[in-house]
């Protein structure tokens, strides 16, 4: 059997939700210039900060986790987050590769 990249992520999202956890899905929906991971890379984040998968190979994950938790706390449906090198915050977050990525986060609804 061959695994498609999101197989483990989707199966685990289902498991976490079965265990009554709130879970968000983060997806790279657009990239400009050099970006660590391609469009369609995904990651799941639970309300208690557990995560699986990757959207940047480690550069912006911490910020995405924070955003996902706050999305679920504030009962928002979805949000787009742009990580851009020209944005000073991006350096703090550490997108050191010089790319620009747009990440879409949404809560997985039962």
């Amino acid at each position: 059997m061959s695994n498609f990249p999101e197989k483990k992520i989707f199966e685990e999202a289902d498991n976490w939700i079965k265990n009554n956890k709130k879970v968000s899905l983060a997806t790279v929906v657009q990239t400009w210039g050099s970006s660590p991971l391609g469009i369609g890379s995904r990651m799941i984040v639970s309300e208690d900060g557990n995560f699986l998968g990757s959207v940047s190979g480690g550069c912006v994950e911490a910020k995405v986790i924070e955003e996902c938790i706050s999305l679920m706390k504030n009962k928002k449906i979805c949000k787009k987050i742009d990580f851009n090198v020209s944005n000073e915050n991006a350096w703090e977050i550490g997108l050191a590769c010089g790319g620009d990525i747009l990440i879409y986060i949404e809560e997985i609804k039962q």
């Binding site: 197989k7 989707f10 899905l25 997806t27 929906v29 787009k80 879409y104 039962q110």
Partner: peptide, 25 residues
């Protein structure tokens, strides 16, 4: 996205179907 869509995606992959997952952002 609904959990149902995630389950459908897993099911379709295990049935070796080819498809696209579309999201209204």
């Amino acid at each position: 996205m609904k959990l149902e869509i995630i389950r459908e995606t897993l099911k379709n992959k295990s049935l070796k179907k080819e498809f696209a997952l579309i999201t209204n952002l």
